[in-house]
């Protein structure tokens, strides 16, 4: 099959970018979307042109590296699918395809379709962890966890941090990502001691990174390749409200005891 691509090309973070048209002929419908870009890149290299830069790693939909706006939708037209797991059979012969990087102030473009998602790492660093020493693995049932809590935590933990939620959000909000991380740990007993501190710190970092706020358009949930629900955002807000209402200044520890 043949497709016409309009790809965002930008030489560096500071350079001006623009959409460049490419004709991709002899594309197999069984190729993944990234394989199609690989084939195009090989042809570009043969012609002495700069190949299109894009992030990718596992190519099996679990690492969160790949991600681009394909025809105006994060990761393209298929639900619950990363760009690497999207196949050319989702398109028709002769289709025009627009490919753009994630757009957010907090995700500056590094080159072409590659953006810097370091903001996500800093949100995690702010509180997306459990700091109790865990030692060696415990017996599986040593800590009783309600089935529903385990399921909800697992669903939230499915987040691969790809940034599709930010890209799809009209406000470039990282609420779904942050909420997934807060819910994932907040549902489990091991996450309880730092639950309040975590909500305050991660939301604060999310704001510092210049992401927008949530207006519940629902676009993030639709774009998320892992199906994270906006229910996690209600959970984040609940934790945040409770944390803000109960927080106190750390008391000085003086004297003995």
């Amino acid at each position: 099959m043949k497709v016409v691509l309009h790809v965002w090309r930008q030489a560096s973070a500071s350079a001006a970018g623009k959409l460049v048209d490419y004709q991709a002929d002899d594309i197999s419908p069984d190729m993944s979307f990234l394989e199609m870009l690989d084939v195009l890149n090989e042809r570009l290299i043969v012609r002495g042109e700069d190949p299109i830069a894009f992030d990718h790693d596992c190519r099996e939909g679990i690492c969160g590296s790949c991600g681009m706006m394909i025809n105006g939708a994060a990761h393209g037209p298929m639900k619950l699918t990363t760009a690497c797991q999207l196949h050319m059979r989702s398109f028709s012969d002769g289709d025009e395809i627009w490919i753009e990087p994630w757009r957010a102030k907090a995700f500056p473009v590094i080159k072409d379709l590659v953006v810097d998602r370091g903001a996500f790492d800093r949100i995690i660093q702010a509180g997306g962890f459990v700091s109790a020493p865990t030692g060696s693995a415990q017996d599986g049932n040593a800590i009783p966890i309600p089935k529903q809590a385990a399921d909800d935590a697992m669903d939230a933990a499915a987040c691969i941090g790809c940034g599709a939620c930010v890209a799809a959000c009209p406000n470039a909000s990282a609420s779904l990502f942050t909420a997934a991380k807060i819910s994932h740990l907040g549902e489990l007993p091991q996450g309880q001691p730092e639950r309040m501190k975590r909500a305050l710190a991660m939301v604060h970092q999310m704001d510092l990174e210049t992401f927008g706020g949530c207006t519940l358009f629902g676009e993030c949930q639709e774009a998320c390749p892992k199906g994270i629900s906006i229910d996690t955002i209600a959970q984040m807000n609940r934790d945040y409200i409770f944390a803000a209402a109960t927080e106190r200044e750390a008391t000085d520890v003086l004297g003995s005891g």
Binding site: G72, A73, G218
Partner: peptide
């Protein structure tokens, strides 16, 4: 939060 917009964007839901 989004100084540069998309050339093509399709609201989904």
């Amino acid at each position: 939060a989004r100084p540069a917009g998309y050339v093509k964007r399709e609201p989904q839901v």
